[in-house]
Design a protein around this nucleic acid. Structure first.
Lengths: 341, 341
DNA sequence: TGAAATTGTGCAATCGATTGCATTTTATTT
DNA sequence: AAATAAAATGCAATCGATTGCACAATTTCA
């Protein structure tokens, strides 16, 4: 590759017949260097096209100025938004962001986390893989006192910073809304119950039923991985029950959409015959027809907050852990609005 | 932070009363180290919880095993998909990916690129900011022989690897399709003409008109930044013309959607009265109603190819430059399909 | 058994920037 | 002018891993 290696502070020093220390200090605007020398150095650095080598200074300073972000899939609106928010804050603070996706595979997540440690990231922002059941690789980070923030999907048994949305209230609001709309048999498409996120949504759902004197019917709950296909399979199953539901709270918008598509192909009217509510407010939910009622999660904000938390821990030696519960917002759209609020 | 610093090869060496060189070699499975010593070392490394420090080895090897990716906005489906594809390939090859977003601002792009150079990325994958008009920061990379790949938005004057979709054919196909559907006055919402991408789409549009004996009417072309608001403003303008268009080729799906929403609010029927085609195949385009005809760009593939190209240059010292033109696919949906193909 | 060949390890420099402490230079004071 | 204080710069070690070359240990062969 580039044989002609880059100019270093030593090259500058040699040229000016001074020491590398002086050059280093001048470049950092250290007041111990006289204005005259500093200007000479800065100007030569400029003409030589000098660019500091972060690898070297990171090594010496034992600090990489890098934050790692691990998500299940970059190519998902929610995660991309979180990354976007985190990158924005990190960049402004002079940090670089390295990103990897676990594809929801535990093994890949472990490999990623080890690689991030090898790169000595100063902090880790992570939403764990659906598959992950052991967390030794993450405990390693807390043991080594490397700041970490879980977002969206957290590990309860690891004590560290967490940013979640209020999934319980989200599930509760959705269900209450459906009840308010006069739906009587409300089904639920749940996600993997090893993830707090989905457990909480289900709890909120159950609580709302209970508070309204509706009985909880386990047969109306389908648990799957929430892919588009899962959604189709689930809705088929639910509608084939002896007493099918008249409304469904889906744990994400993808399954909500699959359900809608299937229901419409079967001649059901939405929201008149069946009400549908999703979760996450995907970009498409607003524009499909009927538009999908859903819960908005402040993804971009979540990323910003995650980065702020991490930076606070890195730079201010903040030791205590924070759990941030961001509010969710119920967005009522056509798919559940039969009383036309 | 972590006072108790990490175990290093020296710690292992001291413990075993051997030299750090031996440890280093053993960890790399260098055959010069005897099996017995190697096993002793590996086992101790394991129990000490040793993790190599990439910063140090990167410095020594003058190689960061890192690829930089710069996009206008992470939080955009197309870019997120490219990143996702590139990350996948890079990770498999043992590379870390650092990502930044320019927000389409030239200044931020420059800062990012400099920071990536400071971090000594081994290669750069970039889609330039709409705002960028000077490219000194990118020429620096080519001058230093650091592999680079432009994707989607390339800089013609810089000779390096490029991956683009066939924008010309995309524009051509869209227009030909509209003509086939019997539309007579076809308008165009164009993007910033300093970007090849958008110039090519427009050229394709003009060529199709010409090949079909339709005259090109400059007043039917609106050029803007393709935001949702731009789309609304543009469609209002176009429809207020004395002789408004009966079809519009929008340079992205976002503006196509804005246009559709406005047109429907004004009582136009789509596709009967007006045909609309977008570009990029956003996830929402398939599911809105009417669904939006558009051009699919193989974003994930683009990211994979970009990473493969970069890796090939890094690892195989490939010197020649490649330009990859990926095919586009016209997806005919409701918004333009009045003859019901 | 001794010399040559083979195998295994260690020394020390290197990558480029940083920094505590020592030293030199300049300015200030008496 | 000498003494002291203040300011500017340099020396050398350090961060942790790598590697060419030298040296030591072991094996092989005559």
């Amino acid at each position: 590759m580039n044989k002609k290696s880059e100019p270093t502070i030593h090259d500058i020093a040699r040229e000016l017949k001074i020491s590398a220390s002086t050059v280093s200090r001048a470049l950092q605007n250290n007041p111990r260097i006289s204005l005259k020398t500093r200007e000479k150095i800065l100007s030569l650095a400029e003409t030589m096209g000098y660019r500091p080598n972060s690898l070297a200074s990171n090594l010496r300073n034992k600090k990489s100025n890098t934050i790692g972000i691990v998500v299940p899939l970059i190519n998902r609106h929610f995660f991309a938004s979180v990354i976007s928010g985190a990158e924005e804050v990190a960049f402004k603070a002079g940090y670089t962001v390295v990103i990897s996706q676990s594809n929801d595979l535990a093994d890949k997540e472990i490999a990623i986390v080890h690689s991030m440690f090898a790169n000595r990231v100063d902090g880790l922002i992570i939403s764990i893989a659906m598959d992950s059941t052991t967390f030794e690789h993450l405990k390693m980070f807390t043991r080594k006192n490397i700041p970490m923030v879980f977002f969206d999907r957290a590990v309860p048994e690891i004590e560290t910073n967490k940013i979640v949305v209020d999934d319980f209230m989200g599930g509760f609001r959705v269900t209450q809304h459906l009840i308010d709309q006069g739906y009587k048999r409300i089904g639920h498409m749940a996600g993997p119950q090893n993830l707090t996120t989905y457990r909480e949504r289900k709890s909120g759902y159950m609580e709302a039923l209970s508070q309204n004197g509706l009985s909880f019917d386990e047969t109306l709950v389908v648990t799957n991985k929430l892919t588009s296909e899962d959604g189709t399979a689930a809705i088929q199953h639910l509608m084939s029950l002896p007493k099918p539901p008249d409304a469904i709270f889906c744990c994400n918008d993808t399954t909500a959409l699959s359900a809608m598509i299937y229901l419409r192909s079967e001649g059901y009217r939405i929201p008149e015959d069946i009400g549908i509510v999703g979760f996450s407010n995907e970009p498409f939910s607003r524009v499909v027809s009927p538009s999908i009622s859903t819960i908005a999660q402040p993804a971009f904000l979540m990323g910003q907050k995650a980065a702020e938390l991490i930076l606070n821990q890195i730079e201010n030696q903040e030791k205590s852990f924070t759990t941030l519960v961001l509010p969710t917002e119920l967005i009522i759209r056509e798919s559940s609005n039969r009383k036309l609020i």
